[in-house]
Amino acid sequence: MGESGRKEWVYADIVKGERLPDITYTVTSEILENYLEGIDDLNPLYLDEEYAKKSPFKGRIVPPISMAIYTTVSSLIRPMGLKIPPGLVQASQKYEFTGAARPDEELLIKSIVEDKFEKKGRKFVRLRSDVFNQKGEKVGTSWLTPIWSK
């Protein structure tokens, strides 16, 4: 479904405690290479298997902050056939990193509407996404708190 065919996820329709559909994603070696060129980071822990094998991680990992590109509000609600209303502004974004994810490993995102509230006339929604690796270990958590435009 194209973006134009999607209904907007407006503030009134958002329910605190609502779980969003699970999403899986894989940072393939090709995606990783483009990502690293985009952020201009040549850390051998991400690129050089021989180097990474000698590290505490025993092999290459993906940058933990790469979870940010898969936990955007648009990505999280796309499986619901929804899109964000225009004018949505990111008020804050927070991340915690708790484990390693590998290139070519399928990762699972589980998300929930942790809170919605109005403050000084603005509408806020806090979305929490926990990311798990194939062993079921949590590799990180993202909290996005956009200001909803409508």
Partner: peptide, 13 residues
Amino acid sequence: EGWYFGGSLDVRL
């Protein structure tokens, strides 16, 4: 390792 296992980031654009 202290960033990969135990890092946190809280930022505003």
